[in-house]
């Protein structure tokens, strides 16, 4: 039998209403309030061993302290899954459920599940991190919302495969992964069906919603290039011959840093490109077409730039995911900053 621990606020924990909203977090053995319903729903697969009660006001005003105390209390107990709420449309309760679920999931590595109304302001903040089930807007929906959560908890604990967020009933967490269409309708049929609907002005649902784009603000321009330290970073896959660090030719997750001090240019045979997305012959013949060290050295000699950083940084861009590129860019930037680099020439292909 698996074990669950349940978080509720002061009202559902039968401490009191708004007047008791400053109730400090405490952990109790067993269940009370909606925990009784939850227990019945989870029986016999999961046992709710403990209940945590915390005032919504206390949590809102002392989030760090509240989380610390609750995590500390939880350390004494073994549990397989954590559940909180439902918070319905209650903003403070929603934030508390979201925050405590995220903290517990991070610390203990167990799935953390809650439920709240789609307009609860906590939804956009926490939906990507934890399972937030779509629930009703008032406590009148308790008897509808809790069974959905309980069912998911049981199936998860039994190791059953999850369906899509939409099918399960929780807010999509921004995780797009493969599945097999049920029933098995091939993509050709789905495409023709979608086109016919679109042509007839009927409603249809795209399989890939276009996400909103997060922009990156550009840095300030260089005031005096002749005083600046310049580094070359490339996603064109230029590496020392033999690719000593085994950087991948597509879907890269690694980057390399290579010393070019004393080199006037990159010589054929000493460097190669491992980029899997274009014809490599030109770059292998003259690696400077991707990492323009030869021209940069000229600029240096002519005094156009202050100096050239000792290292180049390289990875491969083709098929590399946005997430990995962001991480690698961040790591490379750390080194650039440490080395006092003022500006980067970033080459792709």
């Amino acid at each position: 039998m698996k074990k669950a621990i349940y978080y509720i606020n002061q009202f559902f924990g039968q401490i009191g209403g708004e007047a008791s909203a400053d109730y400090e977090p405490e952990i109790r053995e067993g269940v009370l309030g909606p925990g009784l319903l939850l227990s019945n729903l989870l029986d016999p697969d999961i046992e709710v061993t403990h209940t945590i009660i915390c005032g919504d006001n206390y949590f809102a005003s002392n989030e760090e302290k509240a989380i610390d105390k609750i995590l500390h209390d939880l350390e004494d107990h073994y549990f397989d899954v954590f559940v909180a709420g439902p918070a319905f449309n209650a903003g403070r309760y929603g934030f508390a459920c979201g925050a405590i679920c995220q903290a517990v999931q991070e610390r203990f590595g167990v799935p953390a599940i809650t439920s709240m109304y789609e307009e609860n302001p906590a939804v956009p903040i926490y939906r990507d991190q934890i399972y937030i089930f779509s629930g009703g807007n008032s406590a009148a929906h308790m008897r509808k919302d809790l069974p959905v959560v309980a069912n998911f908890m049981k199936r998860t604990m039994n190791g059953e495969e999850h369906l899509s967020a939409k099918e399960e009933g929780y807010f999509p967490r921004g995780v797009r992964l493969e599945t097999f269409h049920k029933p098995p309708v091939i993509s050709a049929e789905r495409a023709v069906d979608m086109l016919l609907k679109k042509l007839n002005g009927d409603e249809y649902e795209t399989e890939i919603p276009m996400p909103s784009l997060k922009g990156v603000p550009p840095a300030e321009p260089i005031s005096d290039l002749s005083q600046s330290k310049i580094a070359i970073v490339t996603s064109g896959g230029i590496v020392p011959d033999g690719n000593p660090d085994g950087i991948q030719s597509a879907s890269a997750t690694k980057w390399g840093q290579y010393d070019i001090s004393g080199l006037n240019e990159l010589m054929q045979g000493e460097w190669q490109t491992i980029h899997g997305g274009f014809d490599p012959s030109a770059a292998n013949e003259n690696p400077n077409v991707i990492v323009p060290l030869d021209v940069l050295r000229e600029y240096d000699r002519e005094g156009k730039i202050g100096e050239i950083h000792n290292d180049i940084y390289t990875t491969v861009g083709t098929g590399t995911t946005e997430a990995e590129a962001t991480r690698m860019g961040g790591e490379i930037s750390e080194d650039l900053k440490k080395s006092g680099v003022d500006a980067v020439i970033l080459t792709s292909t």
């Binding site: 879907s251 995911t321 946005e322």
Partner: peptide, 30 residues
């Protein structure tokens, strides 16, 4: 799509609000 091993990267390198009807055939990063 290419959403990464954790599925959290944007599906395409280029996006457009005009691409309102799309059929997905798989994730290369799976």
């Amino acid at each position: 799509e290419c959403t990464g091993r954790d599925g959290r990267s944007q599906p395409f390198v280029d996006l457009s609000t005009k691409a309102t009807a799309l059929v997905s055939t798989g994730n290369v990063s799976q």
